[in-house]
Design a protein around this nucleic acid. Sequence first.
DNA 1: CTCGAGATGGCCT
DNA 2: GGCCATCTCGAGT
Length: 212
Amino acid sequence: MNPDHEWMDQASTRRLLTRPAAEIARRLLGSSLTSTVDGIRVEVRVTEVEAYGGVGEDPGSHAFRRQTARNAAMFGPPGRSYVYFTYGMHWCLNVVTCPAGTAGAILIRAGEVVGGLDAARGRRPRARQDVDLARGPARLTRALGITGAMDGVDLLDRGSPVQLRLPALPAPAVAITGRTGVAGPGALTPWRFAADHPTVSPYRPASPRARG
DNA sequence: CTCGAGATGGCCT
DNA sequence: GGCCATCTCGAGT
């Protein structure tokens, strides 16, 4: 997907993570996400992301109302992880954006496993094809072995169990739509960004709940 | 391909 | 008590 890669340095990455959400989200496509869990390394190339805003500005965001114990990482410095538990069984990974004290995050929705294939397959035995290993936010964390224990880690630190490197150049083709799991106000905000790649989930806008 | 429902538990009102 | 930033399987078109 991104031949002959050059990666952004850490200082430039931190600076970029304080830019407007749409710009960050677009630049995250093609990123390298690496986990080292139990000494096993798995690497994913990011193909799909969604942006989420801060207090009072994005009804679809966990931070919309105020800071709580769960969303605390969203209010921390940029470049950290925000990992949350949902539907009673799934973990999802975000990259924290915005300066500390201001909430913002980008949900990593999908990627292509480019390293540690055997480990990823072992963690995702139900996946029929390799493109399905990290196709979806909870599938991606499962393939990488990411859990709530990694909430709040610095993704730009070489010592972290989960690490992120942004591509020096933006991905070429990017589809921009409304966010997948978001209903109600904010559903139409064009904050989902996807590369042209088979690991990207088919876009399904959240449907309003059926009435009586 | 699409649709619907069950799993399963924490968070927030 | 209601609502999830989801995934999987089975059945239908």
